[in-house]
Each structure stands twice: as structure tokens, then as C-alpha cells.
Design a protein around this nucleic acid. Structure first.
Lengths: 166, 166
DNA sequence: TTGGAAAGTCAACAAGGCTGACATAAAGTC
DNA sequence: GACTTTATGTCAGCCTTGTTGACTTTCCAA
């Protein structure tokens, strides 16, 4: 498919179906790379991607409640619970009863949990760093802009909230 | 975590752990948006994401063999076969015996398959288009550069091959 | 002619989504 | 104080989609 013939061909070239398709495929292939390194580590520990995600956000926002984590991850409580249960039983995550509201459970990584978190995130950062370095600062800015625009509003809110520090 | 104190602080700011983490989270949240619209359509048709992926690449490269598709998708033949079986039985995909090598099966979308493909990819393009438009051409270029750098070499080869037209 | 590649299939299993139902404790409301 | 709502946990069952392993058929190529 060639240019749509829309006015300003050059500047709108990036909106052709062909360009969009390339973006779609880039997302698909890149996401595979994105998860590949942590996946290998998780395998060794008998954990899955779901554990990684929980660990990531508990580390990011220590003391967050179960409800918040459910909302960030976009899964059901039953689904999260299964994962959380093993992490707590294995001593990677601690669940503390809320002080103000005793119904709430606040989640924290234990030292053991923090160790795994660092291992996972460092592996992921290595690849990210290489990609950033290869592409350069301008590209990185664009990368983030497009990704942000691609998020659902609810997800963008979570992202923004985490964005500028806890 | 502040600047590493490395030389050229400003230009290397995008390589801090904090910046890398934001990129990681952006990937996570954006990928959810990326798959959300097709997922809704697939639900209605009683298909899953795996079917979408197969349909996408068969459309992209009509006549590709099962082995190639397995390699592109990065799954086992048993896994692909289950998905492919339903698509063939439902009349969305046609499997033709190879002319030169009769062991090979070449995959094509039927008209019915092409209809669903267009529905799915159009939904995905709508979001992509909006994101591209919001971010602008420069950002899009950067987006693609970073994603490309993030891929595993084997995946990048597939991407490149598809990149410049079939 | 024989070895190996491409494909298909069967069986079994696991991770991680989901829904529905039900239980408990703690808050909040009237 | 009784009632309702919220947060959490848990049991049971289902689905998709990934895995491994075994075995078969077809057929190209050395």
C-alpha cells in the first residue's frame, strides 16, 4: 500500500497502513525480547511472568494494597492470589495488616524478595540499556511518547502515578 | 536514584536506572493497550490471541510454510497446530501442499479469514494511528528504533524480512 | 535406498487467565 | 446496635495456550 494521497504526503507518511503495520510487528517482536531475559531467570526459580509482575510493582510501591495491585496488573483477585500466595509462602513477600484500615493488606518485599527483584530487573535493564544506547536519547523520548499514547487511560493513570517517583 | 555522575550527565540522563524503569513500565502498560482492542473482537469470535498472531502473519506473507510460521511465532508445532487446526476447520485458513516440496504446507487466508484479519488489524491500527498522531513523526521514528534494538537477533531478522514488503 | 526434514497427531501436563460462590473481618451508615 | 459495604481470602471448575514426548506419514536428496 502506497501513500494515501492525503495532503502533506511526506509528513503523513508515518500514518500509512504500511507504517502502522510495521509498528504493530515491532511491538510484537520487541515484547518478546523484553520478557526473554527475566523469563529465563524465573524458570530457574520455578516462577512465572505473573510472579515477576507482582514483584516488580511491590518493589516499586512498597506497602501498596492488594486492591491497588489488582488494579495495576489488571487481573482478578483469584488470579493474583494464587501468585501472591506462593510468594508469601516462599518468604519473598510480606503481607501486613493495615494500621488505619485493618481490612487492607499492605505488601512488601522481604530481603529475599528484593534479591530476586534486583536479579530480574537488572537483567531487564541490561537489554533496555543496550537498546537505549543504540537508539540514542531522542529516540528514547519518542519511544516513551508513543507507548504512553498507546495506553488505555486507566493504565496511563497508573503509569503517570508511578512515573514521577513514589 | 540520581544521576550516576558519569561524564556528560545531561546526555546520559536517559540511561539512569530510573529512566530504564520507566521504559520497562511503559512497555508493560502499552502492550496491554496494544492487545486490548483485538482481544475484544477475538472474544466475540471465540478465538484467542494465538489465532490473531497466526492470522496476522499468514496475511502478511501469504503462502508461508508451517515451519516458517512456527519460527516467527516462536512456539512449538503442537501449539501452533492446535490453533491452525481450528482456523482451517472454520474455513479461515487454507493449507496447500507445496508444489516443489510436497511435504511443505503453504498457508493462505480464505476470503472469510481475510475479513476477520481486516477487522482485527483495523482495530489495532486505529489505536496505533492515534498514538502515532499524538506523538508525531519524530517520536515514531524513535519508537521504532528502540523497539528494533530491543529484539533478539533471530526475531530482528524476521522483522527485517517482513519490514520492506513481502 | 536410506537418512532426515516437514508436517500432523495423540496424550499429558502446567501456568495463568477467568467466573461463581462463599466466608470473614472491619468499616461505615442509619 | 443492626445492617450494608468493602477488602481479602479461598474453593472449585473451566479455558487458552504454552510445554514435552512419542509416533506416523510423506517425500526430498544424497
Amino acid at each position: 500500500m502506497a501513500d494515501t494521497g492525503a495532503p502533506g504526503g511526506e509528513t503523513l507518511l508515518f500514518l500509512t497502513d504500511e507504517q502502522l503495520r510495521k509498528g504493530i510487528e515491532a511491538m510484537f517482536f520487541a515484547y518478546r525480547g523484553f520478557t526473554a531475559d527475566p523469563d529465563r531467570i524465573l524458570d530457574q526459580h520455578d516462577y512465572g511472568r505473573a510472579h515477576h509482575r507482582a514483584i516488580h510493582f511491590i518493589n516499586r510501591e512498597p506497602g501498596l494494597t492488594v486492591t491497588t495491585l489488582i488494579s495495576v496488573l489488571g487481573v482478578t483477585k483469584q488470579s493474583l492470589n494464587r501468585v501472591l500466595r506462593t510468594l508469601i509462602d516462599d518468604g519473598l513477600v510480606e503481607s501486613r495488616v493495615g494500621r488505619r484500615d485493618k481490612r487492607e493488606r499492605h505488601l512488601y518485599l522481604t530481603e529475599k524478595g528484593a534479591v530476586l527483584e534486583r536479579e530480574l530487573s537488572e537483567a531487564q535493564r541490561v537489554r533496555m540499556r543496550a537498546a537505549y544506547r543504540a537508539a540514542g536519547p531522542q529516540a528514547v523520548a519518542g519511544f516513551r511518547q508513543v507507548l504512553e499514547a498507546m495506553m488505555d487511560p486507566a493504565m496511563r493513570r497508573h503509569y503517570q502515578m508511578l512515573k514521577d517517583g513514589a
